[in-house]
Design a protein around this nucleic acid. Structure first.
Length: 418
RNA sequence: GGAGGGGUGACCGAGCGGCCGAAGGUGCUCGCCUGCUAAGCGAGUAGGGGGUUACCACCUCCUCGAGGGUUCAAAUCCCUCCCCCUCCGCCA
């Protein structure tokens, strides 16, 4: 949720919204509704105040004098009721419009769309020669991924990971979790089905509703990332400043409809409806969130780098930030079969956008204020396997990355001979 | 699934339709006192929204799980929902 007061007073705030290529209509509308709502609130409060006075007087009056004043009170009640109804209607409209206004982009976020991200740095060397097989063909040859029957039972964009790839997947999960826990992230296996409210408060609804699966007749929704349940971990709380930052590492299965991606990335497991992911989430003080964002990015780089994958860091442009992020970095890993970098992880600073919806605050010397929330991909397991399958082919065998060997229990997987 | 009980401030816990934003206790803060500590004594101590204001501050509304309703007036009565607990059943 945007900060209406800042929207009113701080021109830079509004500029940040408009840089996301949102037309000015809703912003003007929300400002008008906000002003109207505050005026009406004053009216209601004045009437309510009068009513409280009269009610107390009736309470103190002698019983035989009470009826005389009740007429007066009743009239006031009617006036109050209609004023309240008007206020309620205004508030509902205000909220509805405000929910659709995105978090402003930071001033240093580059202008533009999907292809306008700014490459911050490039780490590692892309291999000169692409492997003979792309990840899908290799996984198929190795018996790592089964798609035919998965598609029969569940539809397109579903697959089973199989055989030794499962062991590699588990090793990867364990390796990443161990690293994060070592850095003080609290590991969490959260619910993957949540109520609408959790989706909204995490910043996903209403804007990204079309990407989400509904279950139980619409009562529950399958999360597209553990970020959703992690964000609710401190819902409605006021945290001590000294306890921040609070960092969590959630591991969950993620479900995405991938609406609007027809025909893209259809082979293998690059883009599927269901995958496992380790997600970092941080609650931090408002003045610390820039540093926290860089920290989370550094952790992501350490993980990708630790797997020996060549990558680059991209600062995402305004039009590609999504509704909730003020600033976002993607790590893109070189995908040899396509000869280009593709997204592997992502980390965002939401500032107070979802904290305002969640009512998660920090105690300050005087009062409290909304804290900042950040999230970042610890490891998208399936997506990472894709990169490993392409970068670690050797004479038709799969070579386990050094980092994972001890946890996997083997160094390489030979192609099936049969 | 069936039958009951309950959700009150940082925490525990009382609360007759009006004198209740809420007794009492714990904790916390400040002060006093006592070689130190502990104890004791005194005072203070909920959050949030809106408005006024240069500032200190002031005014006002909301909040007793959530949302509705009854009433001049609701923590207190009624309804719906959420959550927790106990018993029974069922499944492991």
């Amino acid at each position: 949720m945007i900060d209406l007061r800042r929207l009113r007073d701080d021109p830079g705030y509004r500029a940040g919204i408009e840089r996301k290529r949102v037309d000015a209509g809703p912003v003007d509308e929300v400002l008008a509704l906000d002003a109207e709502t505050r005026t009406q609130r004053t009216v209601v409060e004045e009437l309510r105040s009068q009513q409280k006075v009269i009610s107390k007087e009736i309470g103190k009056a002698a019983p035989e004098q009470r009826d005389a004043r009740k007429g007066e009170a009743s009239a006031l009640k009617d006036r109050l009721k209609s004023a309240e109804d008007e206020l309620t209607a205004l508030e509902a409209r205000l909220r509805e419009v405000a929910l659709r206004i995105p978090n402003p982009a930071d001033p240093d976020v580059p202008e533009g769309g999907e292809n306008d991200g700014e490459v911050v740095r490039v780490v590692g060397e892309p291999p000169v020669v692409a492997p003979p097989l792309d990840h899908a063909a290799f996984a198929d040859a190795m018996g790592f991924v089964e798609s035919v029957h998965a598609v029969e039972m569940s539809g397109s964009r579903f697959a089973s990971v199989m055989g030794q790839a499962v062991i590699v997947e588990l090793a990867l999960v364990r390796w990443v979790i161990d690293r994060l826990v070592g850095k003080g992230f609290v590991p969490v296996v959260p619910p993957v089905m949540v109520r609408e409210q959790a989706m909204e408060e995490a910043g996903f609804f209403p804007t990204d509703r079309s990407q989400v699966y509904e279950v139980d007749g619409g009562e529950l929704f399958l999360v597209g990332t553990a970020e959703v349940p992690l964000s609710s971990l401190h819902r409605g709380e006021r945290l001590d400043a000294e306890s921040l930052p609070r960092r969590y590492a959630g591991i969950s299965t993620c479900f995405r409809r991938e609406a609007g991606t027809y025909g893209k990335d259809t082979a293998g497991i690059f883009r599927v409806h269901q995958f496992d992911k380790i997600e970092m989430f941080s609650f931090c003080a408002p003045d610390a969130s820039d540093a926290e964002h860089e920290y989370i990015l550094a952790v992501e780089e350490e993980i990708i780098g630790g797997l020996g994958l060549p990558y680059r860091v991209v600062k995402i442009a305004t039009g590609d930030l999504g509704a909730a992020a003020a600033k976002k970095y993607d790590i893109e890993v070189w995908l040899p079969s396509e000869g280009r970098y593709r997204e592997a992880t992502s980390c965002s600073n939401y500032r107070d956008f979802s904290a305002r919806r969640l009512e998660t605050r920090v105690k300050m010397d005087k009062g409290s204020e909304y804290l900042h929330t950040l999230n970042g991909t610890g490891c998208a397991i399936g997506r990472t396997l894709v990169y490993l399958f392409e970068h670690y082919q050797e004479n038709g065998a799969f070579v386990v990355p050094d980092a994972l060997r001890a946890l996997a229990g083997f160094d390489r997987v030979q192609a099936p001979t049969a």
